[in-house]
Amino acid sequence: MNTTLFMREVRSSYKLWLIFIAILAMYISVIISMFDPKLGETLDLFAKAMPEMMSLFGMGETGATLIEFLSNYLYGMLMIVFPMVFIIMLANRLVAAHVDHGSMTYLLASPNTRRKVALTQVTVLLSMTFTLLLICVGIAIGVSQAMFPGALIIGDFLLLNLGLACLLFALCGYCFFISCISNETGRAVMFGAGIPTFFYLVQMLANMGGKLADLKYATIFTLFNPKAIIAGDVSAWWMCGVLVVIGAIFFSIGIARFEKRDLPL
């Protein structure tokens, strides 16, 4: 890894990072403040009145405990979609944008190998993604303790986030792979954003249940199962392991392709 490049990339993307943290901090606080057994009953009424609409967003059941509530309202969509958008944007910046813009020339016209440049960018992507997640976890725990002391089972909550980290790792791997094989940012964003968004839409449909429930086999988001993680189900961790393997495979193919291919510089 090249520290100078690492610092430079962090400096040029920290604003994006702060914006996503701010957005998530707001949603996390609002959602936690909505936790109220009585409000839960109201939401249950909603769920009964229009079950399709609520389950579409992964908000099918309200849950009695704070962690169940959070796993439905926060980890059904917000904590997946916002980090996903952040990953798509950052992964695109780290390789494809440099190639498209031509500034990759300066990164490669140096004693640093392509592999070293790519590994540095992977480090930037993973460390910014995981610090974003860590900060969100900190905020969630802090807000929960302040508003409902002792209501959140922190051990379970951390496990839930470890599962999410596995999903984000897979997304990072995929988006980085697309970024490595693209010459233009347009294409990188189209494939980098298109396929995860498609998978997420499939997940939304699968959430609706009935015949559509089988669609869950057609999306990688199924591999992150908050309910099973909280229930302490071993299969949940098998699936997380698959996510990590998917991420690692995409990272290695991406780096290998970037090392070998012709660059339009």
């Binding site: 031509g102 490669l108 140096s110 190998t113 070293k116």
Partner: peptide, 20 residues
Amino acid sequence: SAEIQRNLGYMPGEIALPDD
């Protein structure tokens, strides 16, 4: 290339510099 670049200076035909 990395080894070669240690002792090589390059000026591209089209200079693309970061704009930030």
